[in-house]
C-alpha cells in the first residue's frame, strides 16, 4: 500500500512539474507558482472532504474543478492587486497554470482520492522542483540567454530529474 502510494506521488509530482515548467524562467516565478498551487491544492482538498463521501462519485470532479477555479481566481485577483510585478512577468499564464496543475494533479493521483496527504507531499516537492529549476535557469540565463528559451527548460528539467533520481537512488517513475 505504502509503496503504491509512493509511486502515485512521484507520478503526480512529475505531472505537476511538467505542467509548471513554463513558469521556471526564474526562481521567483517558479516559487510563486509553486506556492500558489500548494495553497489551492491543499485548501481544495480540505474542502473536498465535505463532499467526498456524500456527493455521487461521478460529480466529485466537477465540484473539485469549480473549487480550484474559484480559489485560483481569488489568488489571481489578490496578486493583481498586491504583486503587480509578478503579473508583469507571468501575465495570463498565472491563473491558467495554477488551475491546470491542480486539475492534472488530482486526475493523475486518482479520480476519487481527495487526500490531503498526497496534496501536501506533492506541494512540497512541486515548490522545491520549480524553485531549483528556476534558480538554475536564472543563474545560467544571465550569461546564456538560450537558457531562458523553451528547449533549455526540457534539458534542465531532464538533467535535474536524473540527478535527483540518482541521489535518491530510484527511478523517477
Amino acid at each position: 500500500m505504502s509503496k503504491n502510494n509512493g509511486k502515485k506521488i512521484s507520478a503526480t509530482l512529475l505531472a505537476a512539474i511538467c505542467t509548471g515548467l513554463v513558469a521556471t524562467t526564474s526562481l521567483r516565478t517558479g516559487l510563486s507558482i509553486g506556492i500558489a498551487v500548494s495553497i489551492v491544492l491543499i485548501l481544495t482538498n480540505l474542502i473536498m472532504n465535505i463532499f467526498k463521501d456524500r456527493a455521487p462519485s461521478n460529480m466529485l470532479i466537477l465540484f473539485y474543478m469549480v473549487l480550484v477555479a474559484f480559489l485560483t481566481s481569488i489568488i489571481y485577483i489578490i496578486t493583481q492587486a498586491y504583486l503587480p510585478e509578478l503579473i508583469a512577468e507571468l501575465g495570463v499564464y498565472m491563473p491558467i497554470l495554477i488551475f491546470s496543475v491542480c486539475i492534472i494533479v488530482q486526475i493523475v493521483s486518482g479520480e476519487e482520492n481527495y487526500s490531503i496527504n498526497i496534496a501536501l507531499k506533492t506541494s512540497i516537492g512541486f515548490i522545491l522542483a520549480l524553485g531549483v529549476i528556476g534558480i538554475v535557469r536564472e543563474v545560467l540565463g544571465k550569461n546564456y540567454t538560450a537558457m531562458l528559451e523553451a528547449p533549455a527548460a526540457f534539458l534542465t528539467a531532464g538533467i535535474l530529474l536524473a540527478i535527483a533520481s540518482g541521489i535518491f537512488n530510484k527511478k523517477a517513475i
Binding site: 485577483i77 489578490i78 493583481q80 492587486a81 498586491y82 503587480p84 503579473i87 508583469a88
Partner: peptide
C-alpha cells in the same frame, strides 16, 4: 480590490 488593481495599471 478593483481600485488597487486599477492603480497598478499593467504597463
Amino acid at each position: 480590490l478593483e481600485d488597487k488593481i486599477a492603480e497598478n495599471d499593467f504597463g
